[in-house]
């Protein structure tokens, strides 16, 4: 993968650069979804237009919780039946104690699903080589285009430069 990107010192210039790239995307032959943004802090409230992000996480979590709870009941019911040992005059599958096991596994299911969904949907962990610049964690905002058309990449760079990029760099994974 190749990429060209600019490092912006503040949100204003980064926002302008984004807007410019989007407006010109068809002329600059930028593929859909090829515009890249990276920042050292969440920019959800900064008007970058990606507050429209969607995730199924809030739906998957309750699903995981339900699965966990069901697994809790199955575990309690199965294990106490395969080796039935009465204690203290209680039934083998006692309602209240099994409820506790179900509750804990319900919560475990929810938490576990959330973590796994986060990692998978955020595509972490990833240790290969991909577009990134350490300047991002220095507070710079990275705006770039992945796999730019070879002929247009110079013009994209100029756009980034003119909108206030401190540096324009190129990236190649080869």
């Amino acid at each position: 993968m190749n990429a060209i990107y600019g490092l912006f010192p503040d949100t204003n210039s980064a926002r302008r650069a984004l807007a410019a790239l989007r407006e010109e995307s068809s002329r600059l032959r930028i593929k859909p979804g090829a515009i890249v943004l990276m920042s050292s802090e969440p920019l959800e409230e900064e008007g970058f237009g990606w507050e429209k992000q969607r995730t199924y996480m809030p739906w998957l979590t309750p699903l995981g919780a339900l699965l966990g709870g069901a697994a809790g009941y199955a575990l309690a019911a199965f294990t106490q039946r395969v080796y039935p040992l009465p204690t203290g005059g209680m039934p083998l599958i006692a309602m209240y104690p099994s409820g506790i096991i179900m509750y804990e596994l319900t919560m475990f299911g929810a938490i576990f699903t959330t973590i796994v969904t986060l990692l998978i949907s955020a595509r972490l962990p990833f240790y290969g080589k991909r577009l990134y610049d350490p300047e991002v964690t220095n507070g710079k905002i990275l705006v770039g285009v992945a796999d730019p058309d070879r002929e247009c990449s110079g013009e994209i760079g100029q756009h980034l430069q003119s909108e206030g990029a401190e540096q324009v760099r190129e990236f190649s994974s080869e």
């Binding site: 959800e44 991909r130 991002v136």
Partner: peptide
């Protein structure tokens, strides 16, 4: 990396 997707998730 700090992409919008990562921050959002």
């Amino acid at each position: 990396r700090g992409t919008p997707r990562e921050w959002h998730r």
